[in-house]
Design a protein around this nucleic acid. Sequence first.
DNA 1: GCGGAACCGTACCGTACGGTACGCCTGCGG
DNA 2: CCGCAGGCGTACCGTACGGTACGGTTCCGC
Lengths: 215, 215
Amino acid sequence: MPLPIKISEETFTPRQQAVLTAALDLLVENGDGLTMTAVARRASCSKETLYKWFGDRDGLLTATVQWQAAKVRMPHVDRSHLSAKVLRESLEQFARDLLTTIVGEVSITLNRTAVTHAAQEKDSLGNIVLENGPLAIRRRLKPILEAARDARLLRFNASEDAYRTFFGLVVRDVQIRLLLGDKGLTQSNVEANIEADVKAATDQFLALYGAKANI
Amino acid sequence: MPLPIKISEETFTPRQQAVLTAALDLLVENGDGLTMTAVARRASCSKETLYKWFGDRDGLLTATVQWQAAKVRMPHVDRSHLSAKVLRESLEQFARDLLTTIVGEVSITLNRTAVTHAAQEKDSLGNIVLENGPLAIRRRLKPILEAARDARLLRFNASEDAYRTFFGLVVRDVQIRLLLGDKGLTQSNVEANIEADVKAATDQFLALYGAKANI
DNA sequence: GCGGAACCGTACCGTACGGTACGCCTGCGG
DNA sequence: CCGCAGGCGTACCGTACGGTACGGTTCCGC
């Protein structure tokens, strides 16, 4: 039962969304604690209903991840008015959104769930997370980078490389350390540094790819 | 039963290492397929022995991860003969080792296992992987960076920031995509580009942190 | 050769959980 | 008022798996 790529308002009824919220809460609270019985109890519905709506446990998991992942919003930038200032602000906004998302407990949970899933030869959850995370960023960022190149604000050969460098400069080792549960990297700890990290990453990216006049 | 941080030759008997090898093979082959029965069968030993040696399933998992993670070797660089050329080669070697490791199936499996574990409020495996992965790199790389700064080959304020930038430039989105099972990123696919990526990352790092004469 | 320790293989137990069946209640169209 | 669809709660089933027990075998020290 492959779910549609795009989740619209009517994909799930309000009642179903309440169930998905319960499932997500359980996931966040207690990683693998997503048992059908627990979801049913939390959502005050019967297991039979769960199976009717979502098919099986995997379907529920997929629906939960998909529904939540689609909520990640992405900044929209007007490509037609690019200037050095606008470009920098756009990059900073992307970096800020990316870091803020990655640091969030929901994102950590979803990524962990998808990684766990991927360890079982199933890549559906991983694809959903990728599609709504890194790849969504890439889709939004690449046109901007290319527009900036056209406007002589940036210099690079492949926008793919530029995007991936930006990603690396922003994320660094934060995500993997959070996923691995590094205690030296509390959420609040990272959040406090987001603004500084955003600025540093943007500066570095512009130093590498910016046309000289715009550094 | 906390295991020692450092794994020496005598930590496990050859027979025990054979068991751990079997466990690791099962992990790699089939992510969560690490059942005690499967390990016992694969290693031709009894479950009772497994419990006697490793306490419980978690102990076996921990021993497996720890034993394997400790195998990751790290380049050793002589800090006393730093030149621009030696520095560049050292950085490239670090980048190459890091990428090669990350791309390997064993590393992917270990990281996935540790992430899954971290989703259950247990951070022991995550700590082991961190300790033998990113943190090991950091321990080795930082002194080199600082020596290079002393030799006026690099410029930075905090070596921590420099290290993390290097990590980001090298790893970019490769690891998270591999962990999530991105099919657009096959192992062979990445391996073919390692040398180019190593050079690009090193160039970028030196462009950001190198003293001008050494770019 | 003998006793015991270590270990193999297997049978066994308890539990947790995915999935199903069923009885009951509620709301709604006719 | 009746019938029925949708859904709740619960009991139930089968299985997989962690963990234990036990008989049989090998090997080593004495």
